[in-house]
Write a protein that binds this DNA or RNA. Structure first.
Lengths: 139, 139
DNA sequence: GTAAGTACGCACATAAAGGTAAGTACCCAT
DNA sequence: ATGGGTACTTACCTTTATGTGCGTACTTAC
């Protein structure tokens, strides 16, 4: 996908020069910016559900699996890894014999979780209006 | 995908009985709820960009195409249709000879747009912290 | 008159996301 | 000792999303 990013235009702001105060965030329209990936993780099919579920407290892997109806183990593990990698989810594994792992939100995770939930809530709340706008629900 | 939705559990709340006050919104954990699709459209790869772009005012098709660097005509048209179908974008076509179409946000669209932008902004603003959390940026 | 721009639609192809099934290592209840 | 639960991983396959390129109908610019 030929992203002719010709000159080395900064995607995320030089992380060690003028950082602190201004911190230019080159996202949205900059394809290579890592924040795009973060957004992807957070708004992924199961990411939203997991974040919201965890807003309700610590959960074990299988608890999440049961609560998030329809998710496969593969995707649950994958999504949790993404969120963990982004620093939103904290994983605590107990070295007991039948595996026991607990997942919870980090302070940062709680923040995004709330934002995501806010968006989801807005959509839910305005669904009737949205549906009313168009009789033919384009798939 | 055997969604054993056994009994007819409401996905979106009966839109004409206990509506007004309570309005049960059966989203998030209800796979069949249309709000899932809306979320998908809104958080899609180009949906976010388009909404943000339109927050800046009315745009023509090719204006959007140029502004949203990297989008293909196909996807731009597709995403605009989704958003139009959801009642977020208003399409106005002038019956002139070289096609002239203008896209803008509806009041509803402006609201979601702001929510989406809020999430995106949060992520952008906290990217340094997010990146700092994990040295290995899981793809 | 030849090229380019406009706003798409259509068909084909690939990439990415997601699902399915099975395996692992070990424990507890029956 | 057989089955089920726990927390995953890996290999394989399907679905969905997105990209590429071409065609249109007509006009203005060169």
């Amino acid at each position: 996908m030929h992203n002719d990013n010709g000159s080395d235009s900064p995607q995320v702001a030089e992380a060690s020069s003028t950082l602190s105060a201004k911190m230019r965030r080159g996202d949205l329209f900059a394809e290579k910016c890592p924040s795009r990936d973060v957004l992807k993780h957070v708004t992924s099919r199961w990411g939203v559900l997991i974040l919201v579920a965890l807003l309700g407290g610590t959960h074990r892997f299988s608890d999440l699996r049961r609560k998030t109806v329809g998710v496969s183990e593969r995707m649950l593990a994958q999504t949790l890894k993404w969120l963990e990698g982004d620093g939103f989810v904290a994983r605590k594994a107990y070295p007991v014999v039948p595996p026991h792992v607990e997942y919870s939100l980090t302070p940062l995770g709680r923040e995004v979780g709330l934002k995501v939930q806010a968006l989801a809530d807005w959509i839910e709340g305005n669904l009737p209006q949205i549906m009313a706008a168009q009789p033919a629900p384009e798939k």
